[in-house]
């Protein structure tokens, strides 16, 4: 039975303190929940191991794939049609270069977007973290720090630590 406790914070300093306290209390990082309405990327919120992303790599892979399609599409189409036009060679790379470029860029965009959705875990349904009531406070306050766990005592410790760190509102979820 997984339970969750969430606390709304108003300042990044309080939230950071809360996260530090939770970690000191021995709560594993992957059980700590953080949400913010602005990018909050300090080491307390986003540890180094979570910063590893393959987005650039997949953008390049997408670009290479796009480049290959961008080359083969016009070349194959022109060969299949086999019609001469304007004294140009049937396969004219000068003219096809633009198609190659556009599809390369399209591939890079596709690679980036797909990787973004995969790595960010989106789209996600239903949205998991705060309840509707709590979300209302959260959006104006700006930060949520919470803990999920299946042991009652962990949740109780977290509840206490969050209150001590200055949480404005606490919510328990089952």
């Amino acid at each position: 039975m997984t339970e969750r406790v969430l606390g709304v914070f108003e300042t990044p300093a309080d939230a950071r303190r809360a996260v530090r306290e939770l970690v000191n209390a021995g709560i594993p990082r992957q059980n700590i929940i953080i949400c913010s309405t602005e990018p909050m990327l300090d080491p307390e919120f986003l540890p180094v191991e979570d910063r590893k992303t393959r987005m650039s790599l997949w953008a390049i892979v997408g670009a290479i794939l796009g480049c290959a399609i961008g080359y083969s599409l016009p070349v194959t189409a022109a060969r299949l049609m086999g019609l001469a036009s304007g004294g140009q060679p049937i396969v004219s790379l000068w003219a096809f270069a633009i198609v190659i470029f556009e599809l390369t860029a399209l591939g890079a965009i596709g690679g980036t977007v797909i990787t973004f959705f995969r790595e960010a875990g989106l789209p996600e349904r239903p949205r998991a973290i705060p309840s509707a009531e709590m979300a209302r406070t959260f959006v104006d306050a700006g930060l949520i720090v919470g803990v999920s766990g299946d042991r009652m005592e962990t949740i109780e410790i977290a509840d206490r630590l969050l209150r001590e760190a200055g949480a404005r509102e606490i919510e328990h979820q089952r």
């Binding site: 953080i34 602005e38 990018p39 990327l41 986003l46 650039s56 973004f116 960010a120 239903p126």
Partner: peptide
């Protein structure tokens, strides 16, 4: 799309 604003989401968004 179920955005909740976790640090990983933010980080990937800025990267993207």
């Amino acid at each position: 799309l179920g955005w909740s604003g976790t640090p990983v989401e933010w980080h990937r968004l800025e990267k993207a």
